[in-house]
Computed example of a mutant assay.
Amino acid sequence: MRSPLPLTSYQLECLAWLLQGKTNGDIAALGNVRRRAVEFQLPNIRRKLNVMTTYQALDIATKRNWI
């Protein structure tokens, strides 16, 4: 069973790409957005999940089967 999703679909997409080893620049190119748009999402993701690092956010998202 999936936990409620506090993240947007775009934030989950960013995490999924990060999990696959993509850089912020790679993710921006894949989503046809500016790199800054991706960089803007990362602190928001960490804040929503109440963690300090993106690695912690990835851990939560994978353990809860969000990505």
Rank of each mutant, 00 (worst) to 15 (best):
M1S: 10
M1E: 10
M1D: 08
R2Y: 03
R2I: 14
P4W: 03
L5M: 14
L5D: 14
L5Q: 15
L5V: 11
L5C: 13
L5F: 03
P6G: 05
P6A: 09
P6K: 01
L7K: 00
L7E: 05
L7C: 02
L7R: 00
T8W: 08
T8G: 03
T8V: 00
T8L: 03
S9V: 07
S9G: 01
S9A: 04
Y10V: 07
Q11I: 09
Q11F: 03
L12G: 09
L12E: 12
L12F: 00
L12A: 01
E13W: 07
E13G: 03
E13Q: 11
C14K: 00
L15E: 01
L15K: 01
L15T: 00
A16Y: 09
A16I: 04
A16E: 11
A16L: 01
A16F: 06
W17G: 02
W17P: 02
L18F: 13
L19Y: 13
L19F: 12
L19V: 07
Q20A: 11
Q20P: 12
Q20E: 15
Q20D: 15
G21T: 04
G21K: 04
G21I: 04
T23I: 01
T23D: 06
T23K: 05
T23M: 08
N24Y: 13
N24S: 12
N24D: 11
G25T: 09
G25K: 12
G25W: 05
D26L: 06
D26C: 04
D26Y: 03
I27A: 08
A28Y: 11
A29W: 11
A29M: 13
L30G: 09
G31C: 11
N32H: 15
V33Y: 14
R35N: 14
R36W: 01
R36V: 14
R36P: 05
R36T: 15
A37K: 10
A37I: 01
V38C: 04
V38Q: 03
V38H: 05
E39W: 03
E39L: 03
E39H: 03
F40K: 13
F40I: 10
Q41Y: 03
Q41T: 04
Q41R: 10
L42Q: 14
L42W: 05
P43A: 01
P43N: 06
P43K: 02
N44C: 10
N44D: 10
I45V: 13
I45P: 11
I45D: 04
I45G: 02
I45S: 07
I45E: 06
R47P: 09
R47M: 06
K48F: 13
K48R: 10
K48H: 11
K48T: 06
K48Q: 15
L49N: 06
L49V: 08
N50F: 02
N50H: 00
N50Y: 02
M52P: 03
M52D: 02
T54D: 07
T54L: 12
Y55R: 12
Y55K: 11
Y55A: 10
Q56M: 09
Q56Y: 06
A57W: 10
A57L: 13
L58A: 09
L58P: 11
L58E: 09
L58W: 08
D59L: 14
D59M: 13
D59T: 13
D59N: 15
I60M: 06
A61W: 07
A61N: 06
A61Q: 08
T62C: 09
T62M: 11
K63A: 12
K63V: 07
K63R: 14
R64Y: 10
R64C: 12
R64V: 06
N65T: 05
W66H: 05
W66A: 10
I67T: 07
I67P: 04
I67R: 00
I67V: 13
